[in-house]
Deep mutational scan, measured.
Amino acid sequence: DVEPGKFYKGVVTRIEKYGAFINLNEQVRGLLRPRDMISLRAENLNVGDEIIVQAIDVRPEKREIDFKYIP
Rank of each mutant, 00 (worst) to 15 (best):
G5I: 02
V58H: 05
R29E: 09
I38K: 11
F7W: 10
N25M: 07
D66W: 13
L45G: 01
V11G: 00
G48N: 02
N25F: 09
Y8A: 00
N25E: 05
R14M: 06
E61H: 11
N23W: 12
M37P: 03
L31C: 09
Q54I: 11
L31K: 06
D57F: 10
I65S: 02
L24W: 02
L45M: 07
P60E: 07
G30I: 12
V58R: 04
P4V: 15
E61V: 08
P34R: 15
V47R: 02
V2P: 05
E50W: 15
Y69E: 11
I15K: 05
D66C: 11
G30S: 11
Y18W: 15
G30T: 02
D36F: 09
M37F: 06
E43S: 12
R33A: 07
A20M: 09
F21C: 08
K62R: 11
I65C: 10
S39P: 15
S39A: 13
G5K: 04
D57R: 15
Q54H: 04
D66I: 15
Y69A: 06
V58E: 02
I56S: 05
G5D: 04
E3D: 06
R41H: 11
I38G: 15
R33Y: 06
I65L: 06
S39Y: 14
V47D: 01
R41Y: 10
V47G: 01
E26A: 15
D57W: 07
V58N: 04
P60C: 10
E16D: 13
V2F: 10
V53D: 00
V28W: 15
V2I: 15
L32W: 04
K9H: 11
L32M: 06
K62W: 08
A20T: 07
L24V: 10
V28G: 04
Y18P: 02
V47E: 04
A42Q: 13
S39K: 13
E50T: 15
F7N: 05
I52N: 02
E64T: 08
R33H: 07
P60N: 08
F67P: 03
R29I: 13
Q54W: 09
P60K: 09
T13S: 10
V58F: 07
R35Q: 12
G5M: 05
N44Y: 12
A55Q: 02
S39Q: 14
R63Q: 13
L40S: 07
A20G: 01
F67Q: 05
F7R: 05
E64P: 02
D57Y: 09
E3K: 14
R41I: 11
E43R: 11
Q54P: 01
L24H: 01
A42P: 15
D57L: 11
K68H: 06
N44K: 11
K6Q: 09
I65A: 04
R29Y: 09
E61M: 07
R59L: 04
F7Q: 04
E16T: 15
L40K: 06
G30M: 05
R41T: 12
D1I: 14
S39H: 14
N23C: 14
V28F: 08
R59G: 05
I52W: 15
G30E: 03
I22D: 00
E26R: 13
K17L: 09
L40M: 11
Y18D: 08
K17S: 13
Y8E: 01
L45D: 00
L24E: 01
G48E: 01
V47A: 03
I22M: 01
R29L: 09
N46D: 07
D1Y: 14
V11A: 02
K62E: 08
D57C: 13
A55P: 02
R14C: 06
D57T: 12
V28T: 11
I22Y: 00
R33Q: 06
L45K: 05
I70M: 10
I38M: 09
V28Q: 06
P60I: 11
D57E: 14
G19D: 03
L40Q: 05
A55N: 01
F67T: 04
P71N: 09
V53R: 00
E64A: 05
A20V: 15
V47H: 01
F7V: 05
T13Q: 04
V53P: 00
D36G: 07
P34Q: 15
K9S: 07
L31Y: 03
G48K: 01
L31M: 08
I65W: 08
Q54D: 01
A55V: 15
G19P: 01
E43D: 14
K9W: 13
L45H: 05
N46E: 11
